[in-house]
Design a protein around this nucleic acid. Structure first.
Ligand SMILES: [Zn+2]
Ligand SMILES: [Zn+2]
Ligand SMILES: [Zn+2]
Ligand SMILES: [Zn+2]
Ligand SMILES: [Zn+2]
Ligand SMILES: [Zn+2]
Ligand SMILES: [Zn+2]
Ligand SMILES: [Zn+2]
Ligand SMILES: [Zn+2]
Ligand SMILES: [Zn+2]
Ligand SMILES: [Zn+2]
Ligand SMILES: [Zn+2]
Lengths: 456, 456
DNA sequence: CTTTCTCTGTTTTGTC
DNA sequence: GGACAAAACAGAGAAA
DNA sequence: CTTTCTCTGTTTTGTC
DNA sequence: GGACAAAACAGAGAAA
């Protein structure tokens, strides 16, 4: 990656050190870093564009460069522990082992997809999840949500592993925490949108307005390189191939003929784009261990994520922005604040309690009694309960990826964070002649609003 | 009214002074007080219950006692001026005098009533209004609403005076600002709910729970006493008549036979009730002029109403509770604050402008940029505009009744205030066996919620 | 102004 | 249709 | 706790 | 159906 590497400055690490890194590293974040066996999945080509591969669990990852906020990434497998935190406790129980949790309960897997703006894909399943979002399957832990309101029922039939989605594109499922013979056969993800260096015609069109053209050569397309040696299941290395013709580039254009998509438009702004991100990588992409950091280490610090001590660079427990001192609050070892109020809510399904009668009264009217919220009213009591999570420190939604220490208060945020790793851009503008793709709903939404790209 | 009068203390005025008052009184509030001619409509019976009468304009009024927050009331007619402030400027123009404002515009009179919880009455029209609420007909004045957003179109065909509602109960219309020959023939109001001393069986039932019975004698019912001498049009004096049989007491029970209603249940708590209100009257019911005050003078001070100087008892201009100092605000002689912003909103129909770009940005997102509102968001831009009235001092909705100096920022508040004068209780609970009546939606709503008196 | 990404109250979808 | 929960959305907004 | 009454953001109704 | 305005509602809350 010459053009990128040339922008690195002081802490620049020779790419060879990445490949030769051992897994005896025991830094706070890297204690489960993988062996050279997995690192051999790194793309070692010497071109100037990043390469992507797919791991056992079906996720796509790029190694060896930091383009587009996707910094040096280690090849990792989700640990069994992290997956267990994501999935329900009795996930994958044999169908008859839990008579009380049968398929008549909510939570049994649906055959329909719940998507709205996202590009529908016939074989699109979220990474490491059997339910797209997963909010309902948060496992209550002691002094956790279960103490405040009824735990969400768990479902032994959570996913019917036998269910096979249409098509011949199937690959091994992402249930890598299980013995191979118990894994579900989920189709693997498509990879096209993941390669966000491939800029569509319309995106180029937009960006040409503000940026100088740097080159006119066509952007590369990507083709599967074949099965790598050291990963046991479903590993494909994607290498780029200039002017390639074998690719299915965009999920959003599945109906379009291959020839139309085989040669994407030149990425006229790739130089500037890469420059900007290279600067960022230069500052942050490498840990002091001289080894690639976790996928999200290179990202800018954001609220509610991995906080880091400025001097030691060690991960520290996140503090809420306006940490309010509640003398009547106990913080459990799981960071869940428990209000020890004697005024209990008797609304069906709610176990919240409050210190004062006035607070309870507000709560029962679906208003937050918390000082900072100004008696804000919500549309339901259910959400009034859920809202309380903004006031405690628990972040029960983990991103189950080795080396990513992100966790979230809600499932949707995690769902979108996963795209930071997959580089997926599932939102494609349907406006005539636009076709721009977006990674986050919000950006897609804003695009439509500002451009008035409303359709139908 | 012996039992009531006996509780009066220092400022008690002999009832005879009320009747002998002349209309040369020029106190701030009483400069248009009526002559003896109209005062002769006072009920002069010497029983202990208040009496009601109906004026030319169809409204009911009680004179001579202050029971139930209905203190000493003068007999008044709405002045032409006050009605003109209520009605559109071109109200009652000949149908062809205003070619641009024809019946195809909104605002033409509907033959259907817009009521929901209110007891439907076949001949129920709001006092002095041709549209029930009147919000849409606020007349823009200079530097008024018209400066901020498009004025509501006025409609020459505002009311089809020829329209006669069903029934034989018609009386002269309330358009007393017009020559008699031009008045519409609106049916007069029914009077039953107006007499809120008549406590229904179910209301008694509720109240018996908390109060001692004082007497068992049946409450009086009311019958029209006939046409009084001095009022020219449609004046009826209602006098009470113990065990009377000729009345139609309750609009909510219109379908019920007369015999069932002829003898209302005894008002077991009238003693206590009257006691409480008599205390209030004792303190406040009489102006220093030794004359009956305006209908609302005797009411407790409320937000946004007639404020009074503690020492002089003179009406003073109301100040908003949290008068915020805006250096960029001009107050017109009509109390309308005009924000002299250079950042103008270009949303269709909106003429608001703001000092800063940030404020405009908030406003365009339907948020209030005012400090005290905390970027509160509204459901529409239209309402975001309307909301701004909470921040200025204009109160364009006047209550067009002589001696009542109340004014409001919205039409609904005025609609409900009118009931303070009419004593109307148009909301009757439909729950099996309840039947309680309420004057204000809010109270009816609360009753249903707390009692779970939901029906159908 | 931009892009990237997280947070959150409501809306939509889907199931029963 | 209804109730309910999960998923998705549509902003808002932080960061650089 | 009560009753009386006003304020206000949203929902419902009605018209075109 | 839609858009729009007027009316009505459903709370919240002040006052005593
Ligand atoms: Zn590469
Ligand atoms: Zn599985
Ligand atoms: Zn609760
Ligand atoms: Zn809160
Ligand atoms: Zn991550
Ligand atoms: Zn577009
Ligand atoms: Zn009397
Ligand atoms: Zn008229
Ligand atoms: Zn505007
Ligand atoms: Zn405001
Ligand atoms: Zn009044
Ligand atoms: Zn009731």
């Amino acid at each position: 990656m010459p053009d990128l590497a040339s922008t690195f400055e002081t802490s620049m690490v020779d790419m060879s050190t990445i490949n030769s890194a051992d897994n005896s590293s025991d830094g706070y974040l890297f204690e489960e870093i993988l062996s050279m066996e997995n690192l051999s999945n790194l793309c070692m080509d010497d071109d100037d564009l990043p390469c992507h591969f797919q791991t056992d669990s079906g996720a796509l990852a790029c190694v060896g460069c930091g383009i587009l906020g996707f910094p040096l990434m280690t090849v990792v497998q989700p640990s069994e522990r992290s997956l267990m935190e994501l999935l329900p406790a009795n996930h994958h129980l044999p169908p008859d082992s839990s008579p009380d949790l049968n398929s008549s309960m909510h939570g049994s897997v649906s055959s329909k997809e719940v998507k709205r703006n996202q590009i529908p894909a016939s074989h699109d399943k979220p990474i490491n999840e059997h339910t797209p979002n997963g909010e309902g399957f948060e496992v209550p832990i002691e002094l956790s949500a279960a103490d405040l309101y009824d735990p969400v029922p768990l479902d032994a039939e959570l996913h019917e592993d036998a269910q096979i989605v249409e098509g011949n594109n199937r690959e091994i499922n992402p249930c890598s925490h299980l013995p191979v013979e118990q894994r579900c056969e989920y189709p693997r993800r498509e990879h096209a949108e993941v390669l966000d260096e491939v800029i569509s015609d319309s995106e180029k069109q937009h960006q040409d307005q503000n940026e100088n053209k740097i080159g006119e050569e066509p952007a590369p397309s990507y083709v599967p390189k074949g099965e790598p040696k050291s990963l046991s299941i479903s590993k494909v290395i994607w290498s780029k191939k200039k002017n390639g013709t074998e690719v299915h580039l965009s999920r959003g254009k599945r109906e379009v003929g291959g020839s139309e998509l085989a040669t994407p438009a030149p990425s006229s702004n790739s130089g500037k784009k890469r420059k900007r991100e290279a600067e960022w990588i230069t500052k942050d992409s490498f840990s002091s261990y001289g080894f690639a950091r976790s996928p999200c280490e290179g990202l800018r610090p954001r609220a509610g994520k991995v906080a880091r001590d400025k001097s030691t660079n060690a991960v520290k427990t996140l503090e809420p922005k306006m940490a309010r001192k509640h003398p009547d609050v106990l913080v459990s070892h799981k960071n869940k604040k428990v209000v020890k109020g004697s005024h209990k809510c008797d609304i069906d399904g709610c176990r919240m309690s409050f210190k004062t009668k006035a607070e309870l009264k507000l709560h029962k009217r679906n208003r937050c009694p918390h000082d900072g919220c100004g008696k804000k009213k919500f549309s339901s009591h259910k959400y009034a309960m859920i809202h309380q999570r903004v006031h405690d420190d628990e972040r029960p939604f983990k991103y189950p990826w080795e080396g990513c220490s992100m966790s979230f208060k809600g499932a949707w945020t995690r769902t979108e964070h996963i795209r930071v790793h997959t580089r997926e851009k599932p939102y494609q503008c349907k406006f005539e002649g636009c076709g721009l793709s977006f990674r986050f709903v919000s950006d897609y939404s804003r695009h439509r609003r500002k451009m008035r790209h409303y359709v139908k």
